[in-house]
Nucleic acid binder design. Sequence first.
DNA 1: TCTTGGTTTGTACTGTGAGTACAACATACG
DNA 2: CGTATGTTGTACTCACAGTACAAACCAAGA
Lengths: 208, 208
Amino acid sequence: MRKLPAKLASQLYGAAELIAERGLDGTKIEDIAEATGIPKATIYYHLDGKNAVLEFLLGDLLDMIAGAVGVAVASEENARTRLEAAVLAQLGVMLEHPSLCRALVGDLGRATRLPELAAALRTAFYEPIEQLLAEGVSDGSLRQVADPGAVALSVFGAITVAGLSAAVEGPSADPSADASRFSAAVSELVLDGLATPASRVQRRGEAL
Amino acid sequence: MRKLPAKLASQLYGAAELIAERGLDGTKIEDIAEATGIPKATIYYHLDGKNAVLEFLLGDLLDMIAGAVGVAVASEENARTRLEAAVLAQLGVMLEHPSLCRALVGDLGRATRLPELAAALRTAFYEPIEQLLAEGVSDGSLRQVADPGAVALSVFGAITVAGLSAAVEGPSADPSADASRFSAAVSELVLDGLATPASRVQRRGEAL
DNA sequence: TCTTGGTTTGTACTGTGAGTACAACATACG
DNA sequence: CGTATGTTGTACTCACAGTACAAACCAAGA
């Protein structure tokens, strides 16, 4: 069941828009069959039902993200620079595939309840960040924080929500321009914070 | 259909855990009837079906959040301080009601497709932040950023994902302690960022 | 060519669960 | 009382996921 012929795989993408629009519940198998051109019986021959369709589509998205982020993270730069690259990479892929992202948001619950997807979600989105923050402390390019786990989670949230929202706002004319714009905003926030220099000085005094 | 007797309302909360655990799809109306002690026929007398059950529960959660955040935001302090208070308030409510939060994550798609809920979500989570960031620029307690909309979205993501994850990790012994811990981490990130002082100086030079 | 084994597809079926209809009953309030 | 409003059980309908299965199709080799 894991190797789904390439032709069918590509046809299946025709269902992404549909699922994104109406949610998996609101989408009948018959609709998927019609939209993709794959007859219902064939779908069931290869896949274990509706969930498997979602699993296939989202699994692919998550792989792409994990891949792109993996490349961004693997460079020689310091962690801080790689973090910026990772943010850009993640947002890039997300904005390139808005309907998959919309499907992800729409069926997040189901996704987190499908064990393989839940794991892929973690690997694609969360783990690279967590890793990078730790490395940044080691190489001195990022600050040490009191609660690294919680902070990593927040950074993850900042990036991901920005990406998902952007994707949900309907597809843009120039995804990669949007990705740069959003990634600049996210990096600015995550690296520099929102405090004014004045209040920061006072605060740094407290902290150190 | 909007005034659901108090007694029934309180009974309905008995379904929250169930829905959080299995998702709305995985939960039969009969299960809800059994868990809450409200017979199926009565549920249908007051509510327009399953979705309405979710809508009721989440609507309540969102009202609580909007309320608590509203109070936090209404003080006389500067925007920066109120932002910290708002973060604490939001996380406080979320951690107080973990199963509602889990239900929200699990059926986020449905929630965003229910117009009233989608609006409530915006009001509860996003708008106060957006507002506060703007006020912070006016009163000088927060920095001006290049793309305020995108940054507000990220801040919103940072807070909300932290809260949701915490809620999903199963209920804690001391929700309010957890709320303080998480809110400290989120505020630290959002206000001060992760850059080291050294790289910050260099950066500030670029920006101003 | 014929055979064999996987794939493809149509059609017809089963089962489950949401939502509805309705009648009997309770309760309240004038 | 009796009329209105809520409560509940029971017995439906209906849509759709998933299954069964047989017929056709399409290699690829003997």
